[in-house]
Design a protein around this nucleic acid. Structure first.
Lengths: 251, 251
DNA sequence: GGAGGCTGTTCTGGTCTCCAGAACGTTTAT
DNA sequence: ATAAACGTTCTGGAGACCAGAACAGCCTCC
């Protein structure tokens, strides 16, 4: 897992990118101080990134460019799972009028592939590409519930069980109990665990070999979703969408 | 513009990323040959990128990870123009039933920020993040028509006037004539210039200071769009959408 | 079955390059 | 005016990147 001979110069470039992402547009000096590097080094990295479209300069400020979106968009587009699920997520958003989401697991984290807003949908601070801990969302738990137990332990080891809110899962035992329940029921729910007042229902998508490919969810404010809705019509719509994706992937 | 002291190691990393994007999942040896580098160097770069989530490994193959989408998605989300235009593009897709697009200029190229499919929409090979030459699309020409003449010349100089199809603009004179017409009319059209049988109508979005922020378009197969539609109802819908975005941006 | 051809990975040290720090040219603030 | 910030350029010595060789697995094929 850990590189035997890491390329330190590349690591500096990546640190610079992260710093720019956190700070937004800013100057050379500020970046150099934040990264504990000399101004000239930061400047050299910035101009190099700029020549390749990864960084932009306006006036005396530098910021990230859309080249990352090009590479990321291309990567996403080449994923069969995304291609197949895209239209289904949109339909789900239209049918429910709420926010529909698509998540995959990567390196022990959940990555949102897309979100689609229905006409009543709440506007969360999620976006395509955002990473989350798997144990803190319904989408993530739906995936964890369909991974081998050993892999789940690996992920706990690697990423920990960060408690984002008082209600989120904090121990291995709690998590495995929750995953058992999800497997039995076929879908996961999140009742304000990530965000107060937000309810969420998520279903896994599995390949013909039983491997989990990702998960699909609908998020809605608790005020609009009763328990009967959640476990009734909403569950049916989400499960049905997941099923359609499964069928289309496996032909 | 050109870096005085480029960081060569970073340039190698970026070349590796591009190579992975072009080839898709592949092994160390193949990459090393394609890049004319030693296997060990490629391996070191790959493991470094992997530790930061930019590259994934499955079996003996390496491929790009979704970290690029995270950075790119974050960059896009932090653009006011995107935030404001997103819902309007979706509405436009629903109203017309066709494919609606959002483009911005960056470093002399057009970058698609998003596309939204209506229920009849054709499925083009565009995706969020894709770069195109500005002079080859209606979206790009709508932007060029609202840039200072000197900037347009800079862009021609930097990017050239690549002729993607026999119908696309090939000389500076042709381009400036086309831009004059667009300024007069208020919107740009593309009648099969980029793709045979595809018609496209695009309008610029300008800030209160008159600076062009990007452009909005609808693409549809020629079989569904008569000349009267194109310059009538469709033009009105696109111009109206652009106008709404302008109003929302300038408050 | 074992030899030979592929992989990806590790190791090494000589060469190339990255970068701290100093100096410069501008702009802003006092 | 003066000072203090900024971004940019320059330099050479310390340091790291990488070609090439060697290793450890796979396969395939007589």
């Amino acid at each position: 897992m850990n590189a035997k001979h890491p390329v330190r110069t590349t690591e500096k470039t990546l640190a610079l990118v992260e710093e720019l992402m956190d700070r937004g547009p800013c100057g050379v000096t500020e970046l150099a101080e934040g990264l504990d590097m000399g101004k000239s080094a930061v400047h050299n990295h910035l101009t190099t990134l700029r020549e390749h479209g990864y960084v932009l300069k306006s006036g005396d400020e530098y910021q990230l460019g859309l080249k990352f979106l090009e590479v990321g968009g291309h990567t996403r587009k080449s994923m069969e799972f995304y291609q197949v699920a895209e239209s289904e997520i949109k339909s789900l958003a239209v049918e429910t009028g709420e926010l529909a989401n698509l998540l995959v697991e990567e390196q022990g984290m959940g990555v949102y592939l897309m979100r689609s807003k229905g006409d009543k949908a709440v506007d969360l601070d999620t976006y395509a590409g955002l990473r989350t801990y798997l144990h803190t969302t319904g989408l993530g738990k739906a995936i964890l519930a369909n991974l081998p137990e050993s892999r789940v332990d690996e992920i706990i080891e690697q990423r920990g069980l960060k408690q984002e809110t008082p209600r989120s899962i904090g121990t291995r035992g709690e998590l495995f109990d929750a995953l058992d329940e999800i497997r039995e029921r076929g879908y996961a729910i999140d009742d304000g665990e990530r965000l107060e007042g937000l309810r969420c229902i998520a279903a896994p998508v599995k390949s013909s070999t039983g491997e989990v490919l990702g998960s699909i969810s609908v998020s809605a404010p608790a005020s609009r979703v009763s328990d009967e809705d959640l476990h009734g019509e909403l569950a049916e719509l989400v499960l049905s969408a997941a099923n359609v994706v499964e069928l289309n992937i496996n032909y």
